[in-house]
Amino acid sequence: MSEPLVHIRDFRMAFGATTVIEDLSFDVHAGETFGFLGSNGSGKTTTLRALLGIYQPTAGTLHINGKVFEPADGATLGYLPEERGLYKKEPVLETMTYFGRLKGLDKAKAKAWSLEYLERVGLAEKASTRLDKLSGGQQQKVQLGVTIMNTPQLLILDEPTKGFDPVNRRLLMDIIEDQQRAGATVVMVTHQMEEVERLCDRVILLKDGTSHAYGTVRAVQEQFGGTTYRATHTGVVPPSHHYTVVATEPAGEGQVSHLAPNGGADETTVLAELVGAGVAVSGFSTERTSLEEIFIRVYGTDSLDEKTGAMQAAGVGA
């Protein structure tokens, strides 16, 4: 296999006495879409900033295209940060044209590209509007346009659809898919697991600065049980050594329970166990463990921990 486009090995990052990344290693291969997943404070943004030279790593190797990233390499990279970085007092079209010229486009081409993009994302009538007069979602669309306008080899997207409604989220996913088809390698930070399942070839799950799962989407699903059984029922599902109740939610007059098999228990065994226990089962099916379920198992309901608090107190983003 050829050398990975992004190579991170034995990465460690400490701010004072607080270590936020410990012994992190992973690769991103050319042409793939890579999901970089984790709860708030898990170290995702810190890793990206170190990869791009914004932070100096405490230890380890972080390479893009076989070397440490330098500003001169920016023409091949598109980075969409979680925090928007546009000139908010300037008109939309002027701002996009300016950034296009920084990325190597001539003024006419940058302006033409920007107008076409604004038309696609429903902002054509805002071309002369100052950025600070736009909504947060509209600003995010402009930021994405600036990010992709030079058709970069590597796209790093930190929460690209944060705060978007379903219609605009789908629009931006379509735009990202266009970049995939054009050959871009995409590293995407997101909490939207359906986006990961739709777009990503491989993923890493980061928790407390260390990797808890890494590989293809299918491999990560297998690591966390592979399949679950979905039972629609009335009555309480009792404990059993044949399964673990992962989640239960109301459904019509009854409930739906998601059961992870234990010890290789098959569908027939689990169903027989439920019926034998007096559970009235009206529906039963096999489903692959979703990434959303895995995310909840790994991170629980708490998205911030003591380490995050220490980082925030030090003024450091995670």
Rank of each mutant, 00 (worst) to 15 (best):
V121F: 12
D10K: 12
S135V: 01
R9V: 11
P152F: 14
Y117W: 10
G60T: 10
M149K: 07
I8C: 14
E82N: 03
L105N: 01
Q138R: 04
A112D: 13
P152W: 06
I8S: 09
R130G: 14
L144W: 00
R101N: 01
D23V: 00
G74V: 10
T97V: 11
V28G: 08
I156V: 15
I54P: 03
T47N: 15
T129W: 00
E90F: 11
Q139M: 11
I64V: 15
R12M: 09
T61G: 10
M96K: 05
P81Q: 03
K126D: 00
G137H: 05
L37I: 15
G74I: 13
Q138Y: 14
K126Y: 00
Q153G: 09
T19N: 03
G66I: 11
L105C: 06
G100I: 03
I156W: 08
K126I: 00
Y98F: 14
Y98G: 12
E32I: 04
L134P: 02
K111I: 07
L115F: 12
F69E: 15
G53S: 11
T58M: 00
V146S: 02
L52M: 09
M13W: 01
L24H: 06
V92I: 08
G145E: 00
T147H: 12
T18K: 08
G85N: 07
K67F: 06
G53L: 09
E70V: 08
G100V: 09
A17S: 15
P71T: 13
S128P: 06
G104K: 09
Y55V: 01
I8F: 13
L77F: 13
P57V: 02
R84V: 08
T61P: 10
L80Q: 07
S128C: 11
